[in-house]
């Protein structure tokens, strides 16, 4: 596939390599080192790093500023952007801001509802939704236009991504929904954390049946469990998360001090199995506040060293 943006992530995918991305949550404070330290640990093991945008509606240092910190260290950032907190003026404005720093990847999301976070009494915006944000970025990039129709001088050059959750309900809508995002113009997908491999593979098969895997790069999302407690929490408390009983059992079946290693093993096995599945074009490793384990996961997953691509 040919590339449309200067994004390194896009180049790696277009060259047919399995891509590896990861993500970092910015701090609940203004210390830039909280980001650069994490990025330092993983930068040689991944192709791009997502910066979350006030994830779970907890107020944090902003995604855009964090991405700039990454950019300054020579790491390729992916700007996550939720439509919860910004109207179309702010969204487009922040996209231009990011483009002015040559940020080349964006992940378009609706965002968790604010009632999960520290500002449950706040307003939300939802002027547009994630589907429409995809359209907006594509319009700005490809046609060089604002939503209002005016011309953009030096349009953004962004590789446009979105999330997909094969495990949310209703299951039957999950492939049509992917098709819809593709129709909106999405170019890469990072999935929700995969623990239920059968269900993921079924979803991907249905996507393949419609040829969708050739229209979008799908990166399989993985998150290592740190403990059996975390597995149970994700199973029971996180909406849209599917952790099968066997996985919880496997985590609980080992002594406490060995659970972290077990979590990493599960994660590595998931990668090894999914690498072989047609339609998986890479991995998105979300090691929540456990970035130091990303190198091990990447290496053991057989994804190291990362390919080099030439800049234009």
């Amino acid at each position: 596939m040919s590339t449309r943006t200067p994004s390194k992530l896009e180049k790696i995918l277009a060259a047919g390599h399995l891509a590896v991305t990861s993500e970092c949550g910015p701090p609940r404070g203004s210390d830039p080192e909280a980001i650069t330290r994490k990025a330092e640990m993983i930068k040689d093991y991944v192709d791009a790093i997502n910066i979350t945008d006030n994830q779970t509606s907890m107020t944090r240092l902003c995604s855009l500023a964090s991405c700039i910190h990454l950019k300054k260290m020579g790491v390729e950032p992916t700007l996550q952007m939720v439509t919860r907190d910004r109207n179309r003026i702010a969204l487009q404005s922040d996209i231009l801001g990011a483009a002015s720093f040559d940020i080349y990847n964006i992940l378009c999301l609706s965002g968790d509802h604010q009632n999960f976070g520290d500002s449950a009494q706040g307003q939300n915006v939802f002027d547009i939704d994630s589907m429409q944000l995809i359209q907006t970025v594509r319009l700005m990039r490809d046609e060089g236009k604002f939503l209002g129709g005016d011309e953009i001088k030096r349009p953004p050059q962004m590789f446009v991504g979105a999330a997909a959750n094969p495990f949310a309900d209703p299951f039957e809508i999950r492939v049509p929904r992917l098709a819809k995002k593709i129709a909106a113009g999405v170019e890469f997908i990072q999935t929700q954390c995969i623990y239920n491999l059968e269900k993921f593979e079924l979803w991907l098969k249905q996507a393949r049946d419609r040829g969708l895997h050739e229209k979008v790069y799908i990166l399989a999302g993985v998150t290592p469990f740190k403990s059996a407690g975390m597995a149970k929490y994700m199973k029971n408390r996180v909406p849209g998360m599917d952790v099968p009983d066997e996985v919880v059992k496997r985590m609980s079946g080992v002594p406490k001090e060995k659970q972290a290693q077990e979590g990493i093993d599960i994660c590595v096995e998931t990668i090894q199995r999914l690498k072989e599945v047609e339609g998986v074009k890479g991995f998105h490793i979300m090691a929540i506040e456990w970035e130091e384990k990303v190198p091990e996961i990447v290496e053991r997953g057989g994804l190291y060293p990362r390919p080099k691509v030439v800049d234009d």
Partner: peptide, 20 residues
């Protein structure tokens, strides 16, 4: 819809219920 999504459902929809 808690997020007034015009192109839903979001990834939080669980067993027919809203994520919130």
């Amino acid at each position: 819809c808690a997020k007034r999504l015009l192109n839903g459902p979001c990834g939080g929809s669980t067993k027919g219920k809203c994520e919130i």
